[in-house]
């Protein structure tokens, strides 16, 4: 499974990078690499079955917290 994930990312990197390097778009390359790296790490964690926190309760907490400030 992890192999497939890495393969997919590798394929996309192979498709994207050469053009960026050829055009000397280094700024874009850095942003691309950072974002891809985050994505890769998160997807590997997910495939390994690591329990990542859900987002929804966090937003709910934030909203109720702000609400309490006013009431």
């Amino acid at each position: 499974m992890i192999f497939l994930v890495v393969l997919g990312f590798g394929l996309m990197i192979f498709l994207e990078m050469p053009e960026l390097i050829q055009k000397k778009y280094y700024r874009e390359l850095v942003v691309f690499c950072i974002l891809t790296l985050i994505g890769l790490i998160l997807s590997i964690l997910l495939t390994l079955g690591v329990e990542l926190p859900y987002l929804d309760p966090l937003i709910k907490k934030a909203i109720t917290g702000i609400g309490k400030l006013f009431y």
Binding site: M12, E16, L20, Y25, R27, E28, L29, V31, F32, L35, T36, I38, G39
Partner: peptide, 11 residues
């Protein structure tokens, strides 16, 4: 301030 958005679509 990038010159193209296309590489960002995938990540």
């Amino acid at each position: 301030k990038l010159r193209t958005y296309r590489p960002l679509v995938f990540p």
